[in-house]
Amino acid sequence: MDLETFNPVPITLDPTTKALSSTSPTPDTKLLTELTTLNALHKSLLASDAPNSVPPPPVPVNPRRSAQIQKLRESGNTAFRKNSHSEAIKMYSLGITMALGRPLWEPSGLVREELCQLYANRAQAYMALRSWPEGAVDARCSVELKKVQNAKAWWRRGKCLLEMGRVGEAREWVGEALEFEGVEQDLVALMEEIEGKEKGGRK
């Protein structure tokens, strides 16, 4: 492969929407997904107020969106404290959508941090409503984004699994959590509870 040669791709440009589409009668799925991604990226590039529609370097970040996400999280926390859990879930969900909607070229570390907190908080709100499966999934999301120093999220999924009666899974999960987090008081207590339940179940 040298710099000049390439395989021409059958594409055409819509003159009004400026969207690209494939002209081949039997387009392969790879090309189609690539075109969808490209069109979405093009739109977000145009929507951003970047000069010359060239994405700016990842840092510094536009502070407007960060402030909005922060605000949504705080109003979610306030709603949670007032025991209006479904309201809190709504706020957290809005925050999550907003964080996921960040332009792709913004720092991924920031997205990770924001999502990790939002998912962990939403898991807690779900747990308050005894929606164990949703809580378990959200807590897992939070853990996947940040494995260390995220004991709360580890604990929440463990608790949700236990409440759903999936004792074996819960035991495995909390065991892993203890490896990542070291000796964390809550996790150790949860482990004891699980072990107690296992013994009780076998009896």
């Binding site: 400026k18 490209l38 994405p55």
Partner: peptide, 9 residues
């Protein structure tokens, strides 16, 4: 802008 997006991809 499309070319730029394609270059980014």
């Amino acid at each position: 802008s499309i070319l730029k997006a394609a270059l980014l991809r």
